[in-house]
Amino acid sequence: MEKSASKQPPPTTTAEKYRNNFLREVEDNVEEGEWVKMCIQCGVCSGSCPLGSAWEHPPQELFMMIRAGQREQVLRSDSMWMCTSCYNCIVRCPRQLPITHIMHGLANYAHRLGIAPAQNPTRRFAKIFWDNIAHSGRVNELLLSIKLYFMNGFGEGIRMAYHMAGMGFAMFKTGRLDPFGLFMHKGIDNAKELQTMLTKAREIEDRRRGLGLGVAVKAD
């Protein structure tokens, strides 16, 4: 599952191109990254975040670190992975920064570079979810749940499954859970075409990133 090894060093060409200017790198490569320079450091986003205390670096601080050129600390941080997309910060930002989107943009960029924290649960779940939905065009819920339970090893998976057994049985009784769906999952009508579309989209995105990055980043 974890194909992009986190030990792999980040592409040095990137750092060279931008000298020490990490801000410019973010502007070119991170979704909504051009907004980072507009932050006025008021701290309303950090104060508004319901998970703020769980972040090592709240959004305001991340923006400052980007401007201060702290590339490694930002991209290897698990802070932006804490974002739950509640949109509180976007609503409140006096400069209208799309903070939620920037957080996801940063996480995505770190992931693409292969330097995102490997064991971050958000990242791992996101990957499970993506593989699941991209396969057939529709989420196989049972498979998703099982993969989530067993994400942290076999023993914990069994414990988790046992713990949730009652709910699973109840769902089965009310017709909310089809045990055969695990093997006979019905995807969208023409999943092949979806695969083609996704491949094409990736090509376009890679090309765009290639222009920005100077190197084609191998996305997992």
Binding site: L23, K37, M38, I40, Q41, M64, R67, A68, R95
Partner: peptide, 14 residues
Amino acid sequence: FYRSAQRKGITFSK
């Protein structure tokens, strides 16, 4: 004016 400066890429550090 401040916003314009940020757009022009002037860095503000507290």
